[in-house]
Simulated scan of single mutants.
Amino acid sequence: MITLITYEAGFGQPSFSPFCVKAMWLLQAADAQWQREDSNDPRKFPQAKLPAIRVPEGIIGDSHNIQIYLEERGADFWGAVTDKASGHAFIRMAEEHMYFHLVLDRWANDQLWPIIRENYFAAIPKLLRRPITSSIRKETLRGMKAQGLGRLTPEERLKRIAPDLAAIKARLDAHPYLMGPEISLPDYSVAAMLCAMMATPLPTLLQERITDDPVLSAYAMRVAERMTPA
């Protein structure tokens, strides 16, 4: 039995983290026997990140490493897809660019931050929660400024992510999934990111952009409904 260590469910999603949701979908697609274990403290796991899985070989962290572990044991996340190069590009677009838009949408929004703080960090005693999370928030936003997107306004960020969303929609013109008629690995990354964006608990420019787009929102929900365990 594989134990998936994940951030808890929230905002209508199986986890606050799209990477944890992706890991759940990988386990489902691999037809693995697994159970979840919620944690709000990633510091004791590899790279101080979640998700992670506990398996006989030890603890394996990061959704990509979980993917590799399952593939080495026979899982096939590509099916009939031949254009794996484009698929990998979509994964990197979602995880190395779109994700940072999600982070800023939640952490940089002063109206939204109190909701994020009280949900993400509920395990921290209330008297300590504000000072501790204020430091975490400052460090996160400092990192986003160094990355570059943190220097942009919400309007500028929306323009920056627009080509990504257009690329996703272009692939969905002819098929229900990114790489064709069947679900495959890139869908687990891209749809999980779109679902997280739509689930942001207050309206934002990004949240409304995804929710109001019938192609993007329907695609994200289609993947979620198929892959999320009951």
Rank of each mutant, 00 (worst) to 15 (best):
L165A: 08
I168R: 00
I115D: 06
A122G: 00
D173W: 01
F121R: 02
R160T: 11
I116W: 08
R151H: 04
G148V: 13
F121N: 03
I116R: 01
L149Y: 06
E118I: 05
D110N: 13
F121G: 04
E139P: 02
R130W: 08
P125I: 04
A162I: 12
Y120V: 03
L112F: 07
P125Y: 01
D173M: 05
L172C: 10
L112I: 11
G143Y: 12
K169M: 08
A162P: 05
E155N: 12
A166L: 13
Q111R: 15
S134G: 15
P163K: 04
Q111L: 15
P163R: 04
R151F: 00
N109C: 11
R171Y: 02
P114H: 00
M144G: 04
A166G: 13
Y120C: 01
E156C: 02
A166D: 15
K126M: 03
T140F: 14
Q111E: 15
Y120Q: 01
R151L: 09
K138W: 11
R171C: 07
P114T: 01
L127Q: 00
T133D: 03
R137M: 09
E155L: 10
R129F: 06
A167G: 07
E155P: 13
N109R: 07
P131H: 05
L152H: 02
A170C: 01
G150E: 11
G143R: 10
N109T: 11
A108K: 06
L112R: 13
R129Q: 12
D173Q: 09
R142P: 03
Q111H: 14
Q147H: 07
L128I: 00
A123N: 10
T140R: 15
L141T: 09
D164P: 03
R157D: 09
L149K: 03
L172S: 08
E155S: 14
R171P: 00
E139D: 15
A146W: 02
E118D: 09
I132S: 04
